[in-house]
Design a protein around this nucleic acid. Structure first.
Lengths: 187, 187
DNA sequence: CATAACATACCAATTAGACGGTTTCGTCAA
DNA sequence: TTGACGAAACCGTCTAATTGGTATGTTATG
């Protein structure tokens, strides 16, 4: 009856839209709020349309996770290309990538929160674990020092702190923190 | 009809039992699996009984969160008592507490995973944030160096890595890591 | 016209919680 | 010591709403 599905078909845009809405719901209201009805409703897409793009709820969550990992990979690679020093390069790339993803308003907002929520789903933990393992094996030659490990762990800590939206660290303190972390990767 | 509710009344035990079951469900199957039916069923307690102890699902989750924070506080305090050096004492206490809670099989298992899952609930993030803020203000005199902040962030990172159940760090590597972290708190 | 991109209408199962009942416990008077 | 008696600690059922998913359309696009 509605003219909703008379609109122009734009599968890629709709798919992207659905993922973004799912991400927003997850970060703002938690996993229990990410239902098919809620996602389709908030997207202006029917449930049938949603299930056309993602055959099941799990598929939706996995796709969301994939898109986040993709983003992260791209950001790391970009940061690493701008880094001339091999030693600790991956660790610095990881640090910069996490920092840059933090304040990019484009696309999926609240990256940290979404990732956190997704990691709270046991089914997706394994994939994250695999991702970490792959990287740590790939860069074992340049990023296996104790200090590098500490920097990467601290990066995860920053990521974790960000998701609380806590603004208890001013810009200069943060800058000193990052400077020190980079220094540690070069030891 | 069953004789189940003829058993001896042990409110504290039942309450504790319910929290443990909720924690296990959360860590093993994610938040979406923590339903009133599931918790009451796996506890051998009726739904009525569950709702008697925790008037709503939110109350149950909050109580679970409280019990975890309690544990953490106790572990930190214990670690700090055994530490003679004031400088960086809280940071070391935080580190040791997180490490010790990791491998205590007693009571609520999978502490990290449960905390993670709970933090994925936006309603509970604020409380964690408040907790962090309180501590960082209380120990501003002894634990406000950049390196101390890094150690605490890295501790969060370890906590995060633990919840993936990744065993990709052997005992000696871990020991060196902790040694280095402690060293950083003393600079 | 064939197929992909949607929409609408259902469905069985599950959900949080309300409700009223039953059993035990603490307490205090007789 | 007993024995009411109110309150706390349970139990089991009911329900309205929501859940993930199916089945079957309708429209646009190549």
């Amino acid at each position: 009856m509605s003219t909703a599905h008379h609109r122009k078909k734009q599968p890629l845009f709709v798919r992207r839209q659905l993922l973004e809405v799912a991400a927003r719901l997850a970060s703002e209201k938690g996993m229990t709020a990410v239902t098919l009805d809620a996602v389709s409703g908030a997207s202006g897409v029917s449930k049938g349309g949603l299930l056309h793009h993602f055959p099941s709820k799990n598929m939706l969550l996995e796709a969301l996770f994939d898109s986040l990992i993709e983003r992260l990979d791209a950001a790391i690679e970009e940061a690493m290309r701008a880094d001339p020093l091999p030693h600790g390069r991956f660790t610095r790339g990881y640090l910069h990538a996490c920092l840059s993803l933090r304040d990019q308003p484009q696309g999926t907002k609240d990256w940290a929160q979404v990732t956190m929520v997704l990691l709270s789903e046991p089914q997706l933990r394994q994939r994250w674990h695999d991702w970490v393992r792959e990287r740590s094996e790939e860069y074992v030659g340049t990023d296996s020092s104790v200090d590098a490990a500490i920097v990467r762990l601290a990066t995860d800590g920053i990521w974790l702190a960000d998701l609380l939206g806590s603004q208890d660290m001013d810009e200069s303190a943060r800058h000193r923190l990052v400077e020190r972390l980079i220094e540690l990767t070069q030891l």
